[in-house]
Design a protein around this nucleic acid. Structure first.
Lengths: 385, 385
DNA sequence: CTGAATAATGCTGAGCAGTTTACTAATCCG
DNA sequence: CGGATTAGTAAACTGCTCAGCATTATTCAG
């Protein structure tokens, strides 16, 4: 614990930050309200917030129709558009780019299908194209972006590479951070998709109230992201949550139970077989229900391992299959109960397939915040690496 | 992130704390050295440290034989004896109580064997006896103790009970925190033994350099404690690390491979069978080596689950069997390699069976520190709950 | 033994940030 | 139009840190 000494300029910086924190996430506020929220006196807040306005971090909203007696107060608002961040999901089948302001409001979202077989260079070129489109639509340049976070499939090491394993063809040698660094001078972060989705569910999704979360990204592949004590846990080498690699955990073969269900029309594409099974189960099909039971039985072993290892409050079921959570959660819960000491809540994702990109946005915003805390508030500007 | 406003008195408090932090863990220091460490000016440090001396947090060491030219500097030292904490290990076979000063130096350690069959009341009475002995030897009263942490076997919930499971007879209904609260008015914490041992290994043991640690408490029972990003993780219900409850993980039966090893003398007590096998393996006995292989094969499944779930930097092998780590680590490492994506370092505990009590001391000290950070430095006194 | 050299201490004034208090300004309502 | 109410603002005050300089205690050379 390295408590470091403080002088008065640092104190002012901290107080200015506390005003920023009091402004954000609230409707436009009067000086009095800010003073109460930040625990400072009115005159002090007045001076600080004026400085924030001058620097461009805040803006005044001239008083509207105030229905109370007395002199109407100026209301100050955090200038969320002072900076923007990008959250990018590079998936096997799609590329999703989100542009967000500093408060997390999405300015622009563009989704493009991707060729599952595309080589890394082609995939990254496609990403560049989507980014260009987003920036053009928003009238921005790369210099306006303060942080970029990219979600990819597979465990991500400290350099932003996925050297251990990934289903994206050729991707083990790819270096998306280096690729983006050529265009963006701001901090660039690459992160595993499951981890980002977990972050998103805690931010805006199904687990906003929980501090200990296991997120399952369930689809034709299965992965997990872990949030403990409110913070994403990556593990020493960035490979936390890769319980699916354990042979005793049948995550690799679990979705096969769905695809091998009797009755699937021969015309169904590989990705559609599972959806057919889920629909059939909803309609009461016995074979489909049995297939789901087999799927959840295999899935539950790995989930139980995570639950027993981490004792989370909530397990969020997300990913492509989460649309069919209505027919999966109950069987899964029953299977889990057989293994666990204490059963956590089991919830369905509310963010669907936008969770990865949303989590990327959140992590990029966190990066901006941590720069603010360490470097203080100079006039708003894109941080450099 | 609730950044709160700061005024000048709070700033002084923080600076005083930063002086305390700069004093602790260093040899007696001059004002100049403190100023450098705390990032403050000499005059400021001078005033602050004098106040600390007046309040009893620090003491002056009159200059000894200084061999340098010039006026000899006063040297200040953290008054570690201003307060003390207790770390208590309530084991199945032993009770271990450690009295430590605020710097973590052990003042007094007393170990007593315990009856494995003792009922909770008898066990707690025995604990009281050991505590009395420790306090008497040190010339202290319960009022001199600032924090108490107790280690017990089994997952501990938020109230300090072990309602889920524990091998201590009748202990599920026991409430050691309430029992101790009758005598101590300071904060009392109950924690799982594996978790405490993990804390100790990071503090003073085999994993001081690591932030992500899986600690194995291996003996006739097997358990785990997790440290992630430098902090003990308890899980939402305090049951993190209980991977041994998973049926696919054969931790319950793993030690049986050792006890059923052919060649064990019939005279050996149950607890000594394992030790005999380890010694026989050292001497080259094939059966013993095979038994160890079977043991590590079963152990490795659960360890691999933890490693894959958390991706730690280090796995520490501790507990009763850790004395025989020389014949266990290599086979275990080989088995682990079969399961894991990335093999963490595997190390033997250096604290042996004192780790639980030491971890309890560390957690009690952490409790004191967090009180200091939140309540500030009044004159040193035992905090109340 | 004395005085120069050295290094730490202690003191004083300047500067800065936030608080308190009192006063002025703007609006609503009767 | 005046009183009530609330917001903004100026001045005095407190408390803190810092820089610089005088003071003090010690060593060492002559």
């Amino acid at each position: 614990m390295a408590t470091t000494g403080t002088d008065m300029s640092r104190m002012r910086e901290m107080n200015q930050l506390s005003i920023v924190w009091a402004l954000r996430g609230h409707p436009p506020s009067t000086v009095t309200e800010l003073a109460r929220r930040a625990g400072l006196s009115r005159p002090a807040v007045d001076v600080l917030v004026q400085a924030l306005v001058v620097d461009g971090w805040a803006e005044v909203e001239e008083p509207g129709g105030s229905s109370v007696v007395g002199r109407p107060a100026r209301r100050f608002r955090f200038r969320a558009t002072a900076g923007h961040v990008l959250g990018i999901d590079i998936g096997v089948h799609k590329i999703l780019v989100m542009l967000s302001d500093l408060e997390g409001s999405l300015v622009r979202t563009v989704r493009r299908p991707a060729d599952p077989q595309a080589a890394p260079e082609a995939r990254l070129a496609a990403v560049d194209g989507v980014i260009d489109e987003v920036l053009r639509d928003a009238g921005m340049t790369p210099g306006d972006i303060w942080a970029v976070t990219v979600g990819v499939t597979g465990p991500v090491d400290a350099t932003g590479r996925t050297t251990l394993s990934t289903p994206l063809p050729g991707w083990r040698a790819a270096d998306p951070a280096a690729h983006l660094a050529a265009r963006f001078s701001c901090p660039i972060q690459v992160e595993n998709d499951c981890k980002l989705a977990a972050v998103a569910e805690r931010w805006n999704g199904a687990a906003q109230d929980a501090d200990d979360i296991v997120f399952l990204l369930a689809g034709l592949r299965t992965g997990a992201g872990l949030i403990l004590d409110g913070t994403l846990r990556r593990g020493h080498g960035g490979a936390a949550g890769e319980i699916g690699a354990l042979k005793a955990v049948r995550w690799l073969t679990a979705p096969g139970h769905l695809e091998s269900c009797p009755g699937i029309p021969a015309t169904a594409a590989p990705g559609e077989a599972a959806a057919w099974v889920f629909q059939a189960a909803r309609d009461g099909d016995r074979d489909a229900k049995a297939a789901i039971r087999r799927y959840t039985r295999d899935l539950a072993v790995g989930v139980a391992a995570l639950v027993l290892a981490l004792d989370p409050q909530v397990v969020v079921y997300g990913g492509g299959f989460s649309r069919s959570a209505d027919v999966i959660l109950d069987p899964l819960r029953r299977e889990l109960a057989k293994h666990c000491l204490r059963l956590p809540e089991l919830r369905a994702s509310t963010l669907g397939d936008e969770s990865v990109a949303l989590g990327a946005v959140r992590l990029a915003l966190d990066e901006v915040d941590s720069r603010l805390l360490s470097d203080g508030l100079a006039a708003p500007a894109a941080p450099r690496r």
